[in-house]
Simulated assay, not measured.
Amino acid sequence: MGYRDGVIAGKEAAAQEGFNAGYKQAVLSGYNWGMVRGVTSALAGLPASLRDKLAATGESKDRLGRLYESVQSISSDDALKMFHEDMSSRGSKKPHSQAEESCSAEVSADEPAAGCGQLDNYLAKLESLTTGFPDVKLHWERKTLVHKE
């Protein structure tokens, strides 16, 4: 019975550790995805005359529209699937924080950013887009997982 109790306790400890690590990654990705949805919705929801005044160029306004439409077309279930695919494809290659750090904010409106997961790519696009709205001051930051050795 002692052996069986030890095996059960070991399984529970390992499962809890995996849950804790996965939860941290999911919360951070969820936060970042929520910021993308919220900021694009807020900017796209401005009256057209105000958006025209705030956008540095017509291209910035068009990029916002494309990003907003793209983000809004993704359901919560689809976002969850994308997150799962990103985590599965990373596997043991990189910790989550390193993948996010290598994700470049210098992206075009339609091309994926190098080093980004699917959801991280939308955040990189938003970060790149905000330079096209110089009078809009956004007070948010990319949240990353601090990887402890």
Rank of each mutant, 00 (worst) to 15 (best):
K125T: 04
A114W: 05
P112N: 02
M87E: 11
G91T: 03
G132Q: 10
V71L: 08
S29C: 03
A26F: 08
F19W: 09
A109H: 00
S76I: 07
S73M: 02
P112S: 04
W33G: 02
N20K: 11
D62K: 14
E101G: 10
S102V: 11
S108A: 00
V71A: 01
E100R: 04
E85W: 14
L67A: 03
V107F: 01
S75A: 05
R90F: 00
F133A: 01
E100F: 03
G58R: 13
K11C: 14
K93I: 07
S92Q: 14
A14V: 05
Y68A: 11
E85Q: 09
L80D: 05
G38H: 04
Q98H: 13
Q16H: 10
W33R: 10
F83H: 08
K143C: 06
S75T: 14
T40L: 07
K11M: 13
S49W: 12
K24D: 12
G58A: 11
D77T: 14
G30M: 01
P134Q: 14
G115V: 01
Y68D: 08
E106S: 13
N20V: 09
Q118E: 12
A56I: 09
S102M: 14
E106D: 15
F133R: 05
I8H: 05
Y31L: 10
G45Q: 03
A48L: 09
N20A: 14
N32K: 08
K24H: 03
D86L: 04
Q72L: 03
D52F: 09
H139S: 13
E69I: 00
A14W: 01
E100N: 02
L80G: 05
D77P: 00
E12M: 15
Y68F: 13
G38W: 01
Q72I: 01
S104I: 06
E17L: 12
T40H: 07
A114Y: 08
D120A: 09
M87F: 13
V136L: 06
E17W: 02
M82H: 02
L138E: 08
E85R: 11
W140L: 06
R37E: 15
G117S: 12
S70R: 02
E127W: 07
E85G: 01
R142D: 02
A124H: 00
A42W: 11
S97P: 10
D86V: 09
E141G: 15
G65W: 00
G30L: 12
G91N: 06
G65A: 05
D62W: 03
Q98L: 14
A79P: 07
N32V: 08
S92A: 05
A42V: 15
H147A: 08
A9G: 06
W140K: 13
E17Y: 06
D110G: 15
S89M: 14
D62Q: 06
G132M: 07
S41E: 15
W33E: 05
V7I: 07
